[in-house]
Simulated assay, not measured.
Amino acid sequence: MKISIDPGKLSFVLAAFYRAWVATLRFEPHGNLDEILKRGQDRRPLVLALWHGEIFPVTGFGHTISSDLVTFVSQSKDGEVIARVIERLGHVTVRGSSSRGGVKALLQAVRVMAGQNRMAVFTVDGPRGPRHKPKGGVIYLAQKAGAAIVPMRAYPKRAKIFKKSWDHFVLPMPFTRCPVYIGEPMEVTDEKLTEAVLVRELERLEQQMLALGAHELTTDR
C-alpha cells in the first residue's frame, strides 16, 4: 500500500528541524560581512555564490544574517518539498535548474531581486556537477540583474562528508565551530557573453572560490 506524505506537513517538520540544527552551529564569519549587508540595504543587487556540497552550512549561515533571499530549486518532486521548506524559512524560491526551466527561473529571479530587494543564492556547480566547476547561469544572472557575485564558503570543524555523492555533501555536526569565508564582490563584465567571455568569467569565479579559505581544508575535504 502506497502511503502519501503531505508536502506541507513534511516541510513544516523539516524546516523546524533545520532551524534547530543551524541554531547549534557556531558560525565564525571571515571577510567584510558589513559591506555585504550594506549593499543589500543600499539596494545594490548581489548574488551569493556557493558550492553545491556546502549548501547546508552556507545557507544556514545566510539564514542567520538575512531573510531577504531568493533561492533556485529544481522542478523535481523532491524540489517541491525543498521549496516549501525554504519558503517556511522566510525566503522566496524560483523553480528551475540548468537541466530544466533554467532561463525562466533566471528571469523570474531578476524580477524578484529588483522588486523585493532580495539577494540571490546560487549553487554555481549544481545541480549535477562537475564538482567545483561553475556553470554559466550565475554569470548570466549577475549580468542581467546588474549584480555583483559574492563567493561564500564554509568549513565546519566537525562534519560528515558524503564522498559517494558527486558534490561531497558536507553535513556539519551539531555544536561545531563553522568558519565562513566571504569573498570580495566580483563585478561581472558588461560585454556580450560569447563563449570565450563566459569561459573567462567562470575561470575568474572558480579561482576566487577555490582560494577562499583554502587554508581551512583538511584531507577529508
Rank of each mutant, 00 (worst) to 15 (best):
A49D: 09
L202D: 00
F162D: 14
V138S: 03
S4H: 11
E28M: 13
M209P: 09
M113I: 00
S76I: 12
G146N: 10
K2M: 11
T194N: 03
M209I: 05
P127V: 02
V138L: 04
P130I: 07
K104W: 02
E35A: 15
V180F: 03
S97Q: 03
L69Y: 04
L37I: 14
Q208G: 11
M209F: 02
K164S: 14
R128Y: 06
M152E: 11
Y155Q: 15
G137A: 02
G8P: 04
W166I: 13
P127R: 00
R111D: 09
M152V: 13
Q207A: 15
Y18L: 15
H52T: 14
G40P: 07
R84M: 12
V85S: 06
Q207P: 09
Q75M: 12
R44V: 15
V73I: 15
A211C: 06
R200C: 01
L33A: 13
R19Y: 04
E187T: 15
E80L: 14
L212C: 05
W166H: 11
R177Y: 14
L198A: 05
A109W: 02
V197D: 01
T64Q: 08
G90V: 04
R84S: 12
L10P: 05
T219Y: 11
A145E: 12
V13I: 11
Q116E: 15
V121A: 10
W51K: 02
A15E: 05
S98L: 00
R44K: 15
D220R: 14
M173H: 13
M1P: 13
L198I: 03
E203L: 04
K133S: 04
M173S: 14
A15G: 03
S67A: 13
F169C: 14
F12L: 13
G62E: 10
G129Y: 07
S165D: 12
V22D: 08
T218F: 11
Q207C: 10
T194R: 02
G137P: 02
H132I: 01
R39T: 10
Y140A: 03
G137D: 01
D34H: 10
L10Y: 04
R19D: 09
E87W: 09
D220I: 12
M209G: 01
A120H: 03
A211Q: 12
Q207Y: 03
M152G: 05
A16Y: 03
N117L: 08
T189Y: 00
F175N: 14
P57W: 06
V121T: 13
L193P: 00
V150C: 02
V110G: 00
P185F: 02
F12Q: 09
T194H: 00
H132Y: 11
E184K: 08
E54K: 10
A142W: 02
A148G: 09
